[in-house]
Amino acid sequence: MAVDINQIQEKIHVIIYAYPGEKRYILAMMQDLQKICNYLPREGLELIAEHTGVAFSEIYSLATFYKAFSLVPRGKYNIKVCDGTACHIKGSAVIIDQVFNSLGIKPGETTEDGLFSLETVNCLGACAIAPVLMVNEKIYPKVSSSGLLDIIKAYGGHVHEDGKS
């Protein structure tokens, strides 16, 4: 869900300045920033550079190195398909394809209406109930191709009966 950055500028400032202006708090600042904005807005990264005195190029390097961060806004419902080993051998690749078939998005993409975005994650640590996927904070265990369609529908996604949108 895209957030209007202008409306929360003050909040961003508060979040970043809650930490001392030291290099070692940069990751924490970014994590908190992403929690309220749902991605890392450029304005926020520039503020982190200013607060810590670390070069903006280095801040950008950090933001792109760690996978938890997104530099573009994500959808209202962020579908995280676990592609850990246990999930993989139980068919997560099929689920990823099935999301593409029904919503037309690949990992890292967001639907045009901004409703869904898809990402793959390495392991959610829920291997015993593989394959799993998360929609925002909710975990769905033992997802099948057909079960996936029901999940998407439950969040208001339009899915054709043959699995193609």
Partner: peptide, 24 residues
């Protein structure tokens, strides 16, 4: 310290780099 999502940070020296606020 909360990790940023990088498998390589399980490696000791990368983890240290990450705590210091560097790329892993």
């Amino acid at each position: 310290v909360r990790g940023g999502g990088a498998f390589v940070c399980g490696e000791e020296t990368a983890l240290i780099a990450s705590i210091e606020g560097n790329i892993g």
